[in-house]
Design a protein around this nucleic acid. Structure first.
Lengths: 339, 339
DNA sequence: ACCATCAATTGAACCGGTTCACACCCGCCT
DNA sequence: AGGCGGGTGTGAACCGGTTCAATTGATGGT
């Protein structure tokens, strides 16, 4: 593609015998007669004109970048980030991806640096949704958070996960199978106060006659293997492990194998997120799936059509669907460890 | 962050008692006395000024976006994309991620649409490196390709994979173990003419007394399972499978399990890329690892410091390192299938 | 025939930087 | 003393759009 200067608005205006202003309006269909608009559009098409996004950004005050910020450690979120970025591209938006590696400090730092950058919006998978620094972004920057409905920042545009349903269903499933003590491995979120998901699990468990031991785990597979091993080596070894994330579940598989426990005979394992590998491990992982594309679309449309007709009140909730596979079963010995 | 208008260059100029021009030069250290520069910088710092990237972009002609284009289907490349985007962020660049889903048509289409967007550069993981459409991007847009050294576009800034070494080492490893017939599962690349990696594998195999059967596979785990099953069900079943990508290897595990073949007893499996899961599957996958961070850094620096002192001549080569784990072994029955 | 109304169109300012070409001052060389 | 050169600083143009306020012209009601 040599030479061939980029066409400017002025070129189109000249060709159409109109002023720059009229041309600009016509192209965007904001003013001018139908006939003029059509003519100008045709002309632009013919001359291969497309507005310079930068100039447009400067004049209109919106940059066309959105930041994807938050905890992007595990494979699931990584995939989500890529999907988000692609969906944004479809809207002619570019993205700035910033993994904060599970640290609220880094999250704050990134958010602060985003004020200097000029982003139109932020899609957050927050490490600490309750932190005050979320208020630090400039007023006109829209924030869409994606995350657990239990911990979400209340008055914000958000895409929520119905984890209450997920946790309830999971525990019910395990209770139905005859488990009595289950371990819950949740990803490390250093500061979230109250840890509602865990509290919920415990109270739900109680009502089903389940003893739920909560433990936190890094979401890397190896870290999770450690955390799981730790949980399994303690006294009162749980007969089932509910892992809030497939990566953690894979770590649990590893720990079980290392300890000579068979899955699901000695230990039932329940995952979350239905990663591509879930149906490949042996035994196939019972887990919860999401419609990731729908989640991504919801987040992007919340960003682009703020509070519009599409979304009811700025909040959409997604419910995970239970996918029964082969990693859960009746415990062989309901009360005591096998060996 | 209410009110508090963004500071403009004019504000700093006023505060410093200088003209806009002088201030601009001073801030970037291009002109003016040391003293003035220091004074202006201090002032900017104090007033919390940072240049508006958009205005800068318009004036300077560089947008600060780079596109990450290519085949981003598998987990490894997805991870790479996220890492690239983060590395770009560190240079104050934003990214546009476009997966072309293995299709050269989409690749061409994306590239064409990038001409309208205004990107400073493209980081490509090309589906078809030999296609002519790579020449279609505007002259001043720098392209950095990441990919197989065998198929790379010659005269381009690129980050290469020494797959010749990888393939050689892999085949040697299998030959040493006593395998005679090995299957090679390569990701589907519809149009790459010649398919050099496969040809290379066959000629290398020949020289080691190996019969190498090449077959292509989608890089999704499930697609790979099918492709592998197909290969294993034919006559002259190979005793080893070399999978060009861990995802494909996982598919092969699945196929082996479905066919009742034990790994590595009945079938040795060799992966590529050392994904996080490689050491988690059972048996642990023997594979090749990369220094992903180094690759990412090389790509980004090739983009930001074009042909500069850092890179020799615009080409950097990375060599995969062999990671022996447990998925390869001597074949139980060197010549005939077990059952 | 006359004025109000409204749509189409326009010139100019503006967004916030970068960069060009020129003015200026001071010191140094011949 | 006159001239030249290098380092500082400046006004203005420019990047390529958007948007405001004002102008023009046609329509319509009385």
């Amino acid at each position: 593609m040599t030479g061939a200067q980029r066409k400017t608005l002025q070129d189109i205006a000249d060709a159409a015998g109109l002023s720059k202003a009229a041309t600009s309006y016509a192209l965007r269909g904001l003013r001018g007669s139908e006939a003029t608009q059509a003519r100008v559009r045709a002309l632009a098409e013919e001359l291969g004109y497309s507005a310079d996004p930068i100039a447009r950004a400067l004049a209109s005050g919106r940059s066309g970048n959105v930041a994807i910020v938050g905890s992007l450690r595990d494979l699931w979120r990584q995939g989500l980030a890529v999907m988000l970025s692609e969906a944004l591209r479809a809207q002619d938006l570019s993205s700035i991806i910033a993994d904060v590696d599970g640290s609220p400090q880094r999250e704050e730092e990134v958010l602060r640096s985003l004020a200097a950058q000029r982003v139109d919006g932020v899609i957050a998978l927050p490490v600490d949704p309750s932190a005050s620094y979320w208020a630090d972004v400039p007023d006109q920057t829209l924030i869409v958070s994606i995350g657990d409905a239990l911990t979400a920042r209340p008055a914000s545009e958000s895409v929520l996960f119905d984890n209450e349903y997920g946790v309830g269903t999971a525990l019910q499933h395990l209770a139905d199978l005859g488990h009595r003590t289950v371990g819950l491995l949740a990803p490390t979120l250093p500061t979230t106060p109250g840890r509602p998901a865990e509290l919920l699990a415990q109270s739900l468990g109680d009502s089903m006659g389940l003893t739920v031991t909560v433990s936190s785990s890094p979401s890397s597979v190896h870290g999770a293997a450690h955390a799981a091993a730790h949980l399994l080596e303690g006294k009162d070894r749980p007969t089932a492990l509910f892992c809030l994330g497939d990566s953690i579940a894979f770590g649990a598989y590893r720990a079980a194998r290392d300890l000579g426990l068979s899955v699901p005979g000695d230990l039932s394992i329940l995952g979350f997120d239905d990663s591509e590998l879930a149906s490949l491990v042996n035994p196939e992982l019972t887990t919860f799936g999401w419609d990731e594309q729908a989640i991504v679309d919801a987040a992007v449309s919340a960003l682009t059509s703020p509070d519009g007709t599409g979304t009811a009140s700025g909040q959409v909730m997604f419910r995970p669907v239970f996918i029964a596979r082969a990693s859960t079963a009746r415990p062989l010995t309901p009360s005591a460890p096998t060996r």
